[in-house]
Design a protein around this nucleic acid. Sequence first.
DNA 1: CAGTGGTCTAGACCACAAT
DNA 2: TTGTGGTCTAGACCACTGT
Lengths: 253, 253
Amino acid sequence: MGTTQLEAAPEPKYWHLKTVLSEALDSEFAVGEILPNERDLAARFGVARATLRQALEQLELEGRLQRRRGVGTTVAPPRVGVDVSATGHDWPGASGDAWQAVDCVRDAAPAAVADMLETAPDESVHVLRRTRVSHGQPVAAELLYVPAASVPDLTAIDAPSGAARARAVLRELQRLGLDGQDRAVELGSARADDAKELDRLPGAPVLVVTTRYFSEGTTAAVSMATYRADTCRLTFGDTPDVEIHHAPHTQAS
Amino acid sequence: MGTTQLEAAPEPKYWHLKTVLSEALDSEFAVGEILPNERDLAARFGVARATLRQALEQLELEGRLQRRRGVGTTVAPPRVGVDVSATGHDWPGASGDAWQAVDCVRDAAPAAVADMLETAPDESVHVLRRTRVSHGQPVAAELLYVPAASVPDLTAIDAPSGAARARAVLRELQRLGLDGQDRAVELGSARADDAKELDRLPGAPVLVVTTRYFSEGTTAAVSMATYRADTCRLTFGDTPDVEIHHAPHTQAS
DNA sequence: CAGTGGTCTAGACCACAAT
DNA sequence: TTGTGGTCTAGACCACTGT
């Protein structure tokens, strides 16, 4: 002891912990396996629970762990590749897209969206809610804003709200010519409503994909889709689900 | 008082705090302005410093705040739109791309990268480091992995490492025909080296953009670019830098 | 019910930047 | 040196999930 004490730059404990845990995950745990609880782990490493939690939080952020209140901490499977490419340049709701309509109401769009739609900030638009499921798990929740002007022929026959109404709006959208679209990705934290759809706590990290759909020189619709950042990898090319592993997996049988 | 005490679902303090602060930022602070220090703020809201910090952390994650040790907490400007589209289908280093070569060494690629390159896990490849600057601020750090087989004519004349070597490798890459590329975005946390380039602390949230370059049926190079998640919005369309504001800005004069 | 992760407190000390 | 944010502690209680 004492011979290797050249630590000029003292690494934070939680950072070192994270490294140690990460290596342990690679070599000693299988996907889905549950870890010891936080109090035991903290004791085992000789740190306060808050410090241990700081390390776990980072590992969860990186998609290595999954924590559920009342249940425990489990080793997460590799992130799911979710295709987000603008392949067909299709409208949302085109046949075979990955989304499922949930609801539709009329409401004012948030300022940032009204800005993109070039509508008045208080103008009521159609707000569709859709969800996207992959491998049986919900991966994204979307709010799709459609100005009334984009679906002029929408009949009053359909229900004023609900999933049926949402499908009606999407159907009307298809009648427009789609000139192109435009996409951005940024980090955000889940609002309470999105968190519920995604089976996460409010504030959970999400990747927010904002898409603008152009038709006849104007922005005909805006989609704000929030993907679970812990479980998703957004893919834009033609190779949706290549296995990316962090380390050699334990062999099966 | 007491008439509105119907809170069936008690909101966490830090969540409520975040909302309050967020609204204050919209209405009472200008970009670049410095907030009161954490101890004062915590006292003002009647919470422990750790709780206040939980709220500040979320706001920083959302790009609303910027915190620097020894300096203070400032109101962040809107996120910068950074173009990441695969427009020209060009090789990295093509004339006019946004990157600046920093260094080049030979090293073994990490397992996940070796996998994509279809090289042996311990095979030495060229590892280029580049950085990307936007509006005077570093926004991304990249590691570009190039197998020796992709640049067979690389001469020994050039320096064995350093920026000049990096440019030489890029120059050789241009000679290959580029069949296409393939991109993925996911959330990560900055490694120590990337954090240094990005002027952030290790562990800071980053958007990791993985690009595979295909040539003649094989993966000729792999790029792993880490973008500052707090300050960047990755854009894929043709509208790189539309202003997205969270709320009405205070008027300038 | 018992056990888990989530929230919160009131302190302490450290690393860094500006003065 | 002063003041800032970053790390860390040793507790406490709450909300949720399972049995």
